[in-house]
């Protein structure tokens, strides 16, 4: 069970959280092309390495936040608030 460091509540067990998929996916305006809308809906990188992803502390403070996780090791490199940029970690994405 992962230990997830909620930016608001501190480290908590994974079962308190809901996964929210890849982070920093921008929802386009309603007038974009079909291809852009399809990419927004369905195209993801499936990163092997450091992935920016969303979590919600659903059984805690209820807040969404972002995390950087190395998908090879499950090691978290950073936790940060929604709306803030992806932190520099010095590790390849």
């Amino acid at each position: 069970m992962l230990l997830i460091d909620c930016p608001y509540c501190g480290p908590r067990a994974e079962i308190e959280f809901a996964y929210g998929g890849e982070a920093h996916i921008v929802r386009p305006a309603a007038d974009v092309s079909e291809a852009e809308w399809e990419a927004f809906l369905y195209l993801r990188d499936n990163t092997k390495g450091v992935l920016a992803e969303r979590w919600r502390h659903s059984h805690g403070c209820g807040r969404f936040f972002n995390a950087l996780r190395d998908t090879r090791t499950d090691r978290f490199l950073a936790f940060y608030e929604i709306g803030t940029p992806r932190p520099e970690t010095g590790e390849a994405a």
Binding site: C9, R12, I15, E16, H59, G60, G62
Partner: peptide, 10 residues
């Protein structure tokens, strides 16, 4: 005080 889980119940 915090919300959490007691087994399968919030």
């Amino acid at each position: 005080v915090t919300r959490t889980l007691l087994d399968k119940a919030g």
